[in-house]
Design a protein around this nucleic acid. Structure first.
Length: 112
RNA sequence: UAGGAAUGUCGGGUGAUGGCUCGUUGGGGUAACUUCCAAUGAGAGGAAAGUCCGAACACCCUUUGUGUCGCAAGACACAUUGCAAAGAUACGUUGCUAACGGCAACCGGGAAUAAGAUUCAGGAGUCGCGGAUCUGGAGCAAUUCGAUCCAUGACCCCGGACUUGAAGCCCAGGGAAAGUGCCACAGAGACAAUACUAGCCCCGCCUCGGCGAGGUGAAACGUGAAAAGUGGUGUGAGGUUUUCAGAGCAGUCGCUCUGUCAGCUACACAUCUCGCGCCGUGGUGACACGGUUGCGUGGUAAACCCAUGUCGGUGUAAGAGCAAAUUUGGUAGCUCGCUCAAGCUGUAUGGCAACAUACAGCGUAGAUAGAUCGUCGCCUCCUUCGGGUAGUGACCUGAAGUAGACAAAAUUCGGCUUACAGACACUUCCUAGGAC
RNA sequence: GCUUCUGUAGCUCAAAUGGAUAGAGCGGCAGCGUCCUAAGCUGAGGAUUAGGGUUCAAUUCCCCACAGGAGCA
């Protein structure tokens, strides 16, 4: 799990991010980002019921994305809000596959 | 010992390293918190799930009482009450429980099966007794051995039939004799049923072949899931199917008659059973058993309904506190509620059991867009593929997958229901056989 | 977290106070038709979400599960 200062927690922030953020999409995963007024970068991950009906599957996906972010937290620049969107094709992927996807996606943005 | 059934328990272990959440201790920082650092401890389930029930807890409503304030209307505080109207209801009995549509034991009912018993002039076999036949063998002979045929007894195996029938399984398991509704098609008739019509007889009227009244028609065969409460048994007289035997006819297949084991159908009579009522005995009770010169009213209440009992409402997003922009109130936000609990483990006692009581020990997640994870090892369990010993099974061994099934707390508990790789206990009950 | 509704052929809809063969259109299949295709005509097949119960009889009534949708916040 990420430290608290790196979590995007309030519904209001997520709503503004959805409305005003910029988007980058891959095949199985998407991303929205926006500059904030803080010095740290905050993350949120969305895995809806449409991805999988099982709570076990959804939670593993969330945990693996968090683990990737934590691994690369040192390289990430501060001052952004980031929201990850997931699609159904992500079910059953291993940790290494998710890691390469997330990293390549972040490299398209100014964050990494 | 063999077979059948029910039940309970578990659902990885261990190590390194880097993180996350919470508790404790120490230190830093602050007006005070939020917070930072270090050490140390803990960190998903048997179903956390579905949300089908119940309870705790909180607030609101309601009943009643007391107190305070008030001239009064009334307001506030504390305690107390919960079916009265409407509505809902899933209800055998006794117990357990905080409560329950839960659990335990018992009662009643239902469908079916195993084993066993009964039976069969069904099939195959073994053994025995009797009779007949043989130019059969042995022997001089009596006799004996053997073969074939007939009749008959016992045992065993297989198969069929009917009745009986265990543990276990299933039951929304009060009332159809309070009332209403429904019971298609078929049928005279679907609840106190025998109709209607043609035809026939007779009477009356008139327009003379029509109308009206009465009788007859009339059997209850059959239809149907169900036909007037219900279904067995016995006796008598039948019908029909089949097995076998005998006789006759025919002349190779067959037909007829008589007797007979069994099955089906069905009439009359007798008797019993079933249900309701009453009486007696046993049981806390549901009920059971016995008696009876009583009565005989189809099914459906998971159709409406009736009787008896139960249920006030909303839900932790309940609610309590602090409180910015903005003075009160309140909003955003934060804190509490939030984990010691109708708790777990063990022993003893009571109880058939569910469970209760006593003593001792333990202290067992608490997040909030929501922690419980990432990487790398080892050990067993398991799966797949291959090799060896080898008739299979089994054992040994190698490689790959690397705990592999169902699935993740969200106020907390008690249940129910549903999903589930695999492992264990071998506990209880029933049937049959054997030994003592 | 809570409340509530729906489920019928491949698709879109019927049938309803329980009564027997569950119906229609479109689509797919086969045949006719045509030089070939299309139109048209004919025919067959195909379903009550799964399981259990009540009843003489269940798509309909009841229970439970599964799937899908809607609402509160």
């Amino acid at each position: 799990m990420l430290p608290k200062e790196h979590r995007l927690r309030h519904e209001k922030d997520i709503k503004t991010l959805f409305a005003k953020g910029k988007s980058v999409f891959g095949v199985q995963i998407g991303l929205k980002y926006r500059m904030n007024s803080l010095s740290t970068t905050r993350f949120a991950i969305v895995v809806g019921t449409k991805v999988s009906k099982s709570a076990v599957v959804r939670n593993t996906i969330k945990r693996r994305i968090r683990a990737v972010l934590q691994k690369h937290l040192v390289e990430i620049k501060g001052g952004y809000d980031v929201l990850f969107l997931t699609k159904k094709e992500l079910v059953g992927k291993t940790f290494a596959e998710i890691e390469s996807m997330v990293v390549s996606l972040l490299k398209k943005t100014p964050i990494l």
